[in-house]
Write a protein that binds this DNA or RNA. Structure first.
Lengths: 146, 146
DNA sequence: AGCTCATCTGAACAGGTCTTCATACGACGG
DNA sequence: CCGTCGTATGAAGACCTGTTCAGATGAGCT
C-alpha cells in the first residue's frame, strides 16, 4: 500500500531487469492517492463534450442553455457534466434568479487547457489510429534521454 | 471553417440567452476533430495505471517488466496500455533483443505531466469525492466549500 | 394563485474501457 | 535444434461512463 521496502522480489512472479531503476521510480512516484487525483482530473478532460464545455468557459462564464447551444449538446447532458465538473472543483456556479452561470474555478485546469490549445495550433492532425504499424516511422528521432 | 451560419436557432429546441456569446464561442472552439484528438490524449492520461506508467517514463526509458514491477501492475496489462499509448504516439518503443524499451515520445504530454506533478507538490489533497460523501469531513478543511 | 421557464435530478439503457486468462511470436542459450 | 524467456495479442468478463427520458424543484411573470 504505502512504503513497500523495495524488495527486489526475484521470488515473486514479477521479473525485474534493472532493479535500481525500479526502486528509483518507485520512490519518485507520487502516492497512490495523488496519482488517482490527477488521473481523475485528466479523465474529466478526456471527454469531448466536457472538454468543449471547458474550452467554452475559457472565455468567461456562461449559463447552461447557452453552453449547451454553443457546444451542440443536450441541456440535460450539459447539466450532468457540469455537476461532475463542479464536484471536482473544476468549475463553480453562480446563480442569478433561475439561471445558473458557470465558470472555470481551477487555475491548474485552465493552464492545461491553454497548453493544449496552444499545442493544437501548430500541430497537424494526429493519427488517432490504433494498431497501425509504425513501419515507416520506426526509426526513432535519436537522442538518448538518459 | 465549418461555417455554421450561427443560426440563432430559436426554431430549434434549444434556448439561447446571450446569442452573441454563443456565436463567439462557436467561432472560438476548435474543430470537432481537434477537440476529439485532445480529449483522446487526456483520456489516456485519465487512467491511474497509465498515468503511473507515463510518470515512470519521465525518468527515462524502461522495459515492460520493469515498468510493470515499478507500477505494480500485471505485465500483460502494461503491454496493453503501452500499445494504446504507442498507437497515439505518446510513447515509442525500441527493441533490443527480446526486450522492448519504451520512452515518452510526445513533448506535449511531457509538459502536461510536468505541470501536473508540479501542481501536486504544493496542493493539498483534492476532494476527489463526488456529491455524496460529506462523511466525517463534513466541515470542509477550509476555503470556499460552497 | 397558477403558469412558464431554466435548471437539476434519478433511473435505465447503450456503449465503451480495463483487467485477466490463455496463447502466439520472436530471440537467446545450451 | 529445442527449451526458455520477454513480449505481444485475442477473447471474455466485470466494471464504469455518458446519454436520454421523465419528472421535480424553485424563480419570475400575469
Amino acid at each position: 500500500m504505502s512504503a513497500v521496502p523495495v524488495e527486489s522480489d526475484s521470488s515473486c512472479g514479477v521479473r525485474i531487469v534493472d532493479a535500481e531503476r525500479v526502486a528509483a521510480v518507485r520512490g519518485a512516484l507520487p502516492e497512490e492517492g495523488r496519482v488517482a487525483d490527477a488521473a481523475a482530473v485528466f479523465a474529466l478532460l478526456g471527454d469531448p463534450g466536457r472538454l468543449k464545455l471547458l474550452v467554452a468557459l475559457l472565455e468567461g462564464e456562461m449559463c447552461v442553455c447557452d453552453l449547451a447551444a454553443a457546444c451542440g449538446q443536450g441541456e440535460s447532458a450539459v447539466s450532468h457534466q457540469l455537476r461532475l465538473l463542479r464536484a471536482h472543483r473544476v468549475v463553480i456556479s453562480r446563480r442569478s434568479g433561475r439561471m445558473a452561470y458557470y465558470r472555470l474555478a481551477d487555475a491548474h485546469v485552465r493552464l492545461l487547457l491553454d497548453v493544449t490549445l496552444a499545442h493544437l495550433e501548430h500541430a497537424e492532425p494526429e493519427p488517432t489510429t490504433l494498431p497501425a504499424a509504425p513501419s515507416t516511422t520506426a526509426a526513432a528521432p535519436g537522442g538518448t534521454p538518459r
